[in-house]
């Protein structure tokens, strides 16, 4: 069954069209990588999937497990099992990282008709997941992302994902700015969640992450369109040749 079906999606920011008709189908168990140069629309795609109001969908549709995703508010998407690992996670002073996560987990469980977890169960779960992303326990007690380093913020996103166990995980340039150790930790976090019922869309600028999270499909986004799709070897080809040959192709196509 398809987890995500994007059909001819168009979206604008401040009246400027960024996504110019994207189609993509992600099935359960698959990992799709979306690559592309700066300004190609990668992050816009992530924001549209997360439900940011500033990004206006002007055409096409997005189905999540057969439901119209665009009809759902951001919290409903999360409760239905969509997780967005943000490129720039927000600092929230005064809100404890752990307690907030407990509220989030219980909102999701409640939506699924599951019993809410109590403090003891939650702590057990959190300890287990923390090890996965090698997170320091002090980061749990601190306010969400406040004073976290760039790498800690990204790891915290993966930690949230590990606790919330989504059906669809979208990673928006989670690898940007990470050193190789942090990158491996992020990749391990994702790989540990990979199974036949889940799917991931990994948005990245760099091929390096894909050495650790092996994708089933790679798509190249240029100027708001997917200009090429292939297997993991496409990422290697991009690494070798860069994006310029595809950009040239795309502009040739646009002017043709």
């Amino acid at each position: 069954m398809s987890i995500l079906e994007i059909k001819n999606l168009r979206a604008s920011v401040e009246e400027k069209e960024i996504l110019k008709g994207i189609s993509l189908t992600v099935k359960a168990g698959e990992v799709h990588a979306i690559m592309g140069p700066n300004g190609s629309g990668k992050s816009t795609l992530a924001q549209v999937l997360a439900g940011r109001e500033e990004y206006k969908v002007t055409g096409g549709k997005v189905l999540y497990r057969g439901k119209d995703l665009l009809e759902l508010g951001p919290e409903e998407r999360a409760r239905e099992g969509v997780f967005m690992a943000f490129q720039y996670p927000v600092e929230i002073p005064g809100v404890s990282n752990t307690y907030f996560l407990k509220a989030a987990l219980n909102a999701i469980r409640k939506h699924r008709g599951e019993k809410e977890v109590d403090a003891v169960e939650f702590l057990k779960l959190v300890r287990e997941k923390m090890k996965l992303v090698k997170m320091d326990e002090t980061l749990l007690r601190r306010p969400v992302n406040e004073g976290f380093s760039g790498g800690e913020k990204k790891r915290n996103e993966i930690f949230h994902m590990a606790v919330l166990e989504p059906i669809l995980g979208v990673l928006d340039e989670t690898d940007s700015g990470l050193d190789i150790d942090a990158l491996k930790i992020v990749a391990e976090g994702v790989n540990s969640l990979r199974d036949q019922n889940r799917a991931f869309v990994v948005i990245t600028h760099y091929q390096r992450l894909l050495d650790y999270i092996i994708p089933d499909f790679v798509h190249v986004l240029v100027e708001g369109r997917i200009v090429r799709s292939g297997g993991k070897e496409l990422a290697l080809e991009l690494e070798e040749k860069g994006y310029s040959w595809l950009e040239e192709e795309a502009s040739a196509l646009a002017t043709a």
Partner: peptide
């Protein structure tokens, strides 16, 4: 608010939490 919502917390609750 958006960050909290995107983790599953409703808008009203997110506002109250902040």
């Amino acid at each position: 608010i958006f960050y909290l919502r995107s983790r599953g917390i409703g808008e009203e609750a997110a506002r109250s939490l902040l």
